[in-house]
Design a protein around this nucleic acid. Sequence first.
DNA 1: CCTCCTACCTGTACAGTGTACAATTGTCAA
DNA 2: TTGACAATTGTACACTGTACAGGTAGGAGG
Lengths: 210, 210
Amino acid sequence: MLVEAALALAEAEGLEAVTIRRLTKELGVTPMALYWHFRSKDELLEGMAARIFEEIDLSVDASATWQEQLRALLGSMLSVLRDHPSTAILLSTRTASSEGSLRATEVVLDILGRGGFSPTEATQIARHALSAVTNLVVGEPGVVTREDSGKLIDAQRRARIFLESLPPERYPRLVEAATPLSAGVDPDTYFAFGLDLLLAGIETMAARKC
Amino acid sequence: MLVEAALALAEAEGLEAVTIRRLTKELGVTPMALYWHFRSKDELLEGMAARIFEEIDLSVDASATWQEQLRALLGSMLSVLRDHPSTAILLSTRTASSEGSLRATEVVLDILGRGGFSPTEATQIARHALSAVTNLVVGEPGVVTREDSGKLIDAQRRARIFLESLPPERYPRLVEAATPLSAGVDPDTYFAFGLDLLLAGIETMAARKC
DNA sequence: CCTCCTACCTGTACAGTGTACAATTGTCAA
DNA sequence: TTGACAATTGTACACTGTACAGGTAGGAGG
């Protein structure tokens, strides 16, 4: 109940709004009441991360190739994290040895094992893959949080003008790419590309082994 | 001078030690003195990120292939960030439109341009590449910061025992990979692999275009 | 019925955070 | 000598996480 409220609050007003006083006031109790259920705020955050992990759909299509299975799994993880944009960062820092995290790791290792990777290699790749996916969400450009979009597109316009006004002899590529650099990225395109890049890397590493 | 002191303090005692009172006391000055030079603490952190960016060696070997150039550049960025383990996280959050960041982006775009990518594609890839490299450092496993290594290897041992004690019918892969999962990673191997994975992805994307 | 135990919560307090605002110093040009 | 300016100080405020001690409801066992 507490972590659900915390997640809701974080999603509604950003992770920095999740303060003990704020959260407990929301629930109509005293700040110190929280410490009966959690030893510290950090433990609460850990609980939030664990809850997010549990939302990931871990089912795999047994008839698909391991590449397709991996893409599906990482894709479902990605979509879960995209539903929790401001709490996704919790997964990147926290060790996350929760039930959900273990199960997710198990499935990824299994898929990679069937892809021909040894346990050691699979471990390395799984680590990078999970970390890369959360990094994708956390690092999404142009998510300037809670400012109205009017300010946002204005900032984009000023960014483009700034880039275009750079000395072309020193920054030819920046000037050339001023528009794509400053324009807001379509989220679907951005995430699809990130996933493609990651999977391309993994598949290439697999191919090199043969 | 201020950002140098802040960087030194962060490196010596962790980023959370960089508090305004602590930093200014270190310099023999009053907390509010900082606000003459920076509008806010966030601006100070931005300055720190910018300073780190400037350390990156941006020279490229003109006789090398674009793949080699990219590897060298990202590698030098990686080594700079590894020198600042506890401040590297600043680069991942901050927009970093500093001089150094612009120059780095320019060089990466240039290399990718010679790799056959359009400005738009190069922009996408550059974003992911820079973000992935900082993510590599920030997400390095087993950097439990400032605890003595005695506690660390003990924690590793307990992690391994825990993984091995999981029900093998539910978590066969975790049990199988208990050792690589719990063992400390050799940093050089870890980072080399991360870089390989990233570059393999980029090169594969380049090859697919032809 | 009374007592005790346990689960849960409250009240108060403390040290630490970033920073607004006004007053103060040192230094150098007119 | 008088300003003007850069740089710093002093005080204060609202906020953070949390230690510690005490309270309260409800049910089990005597």
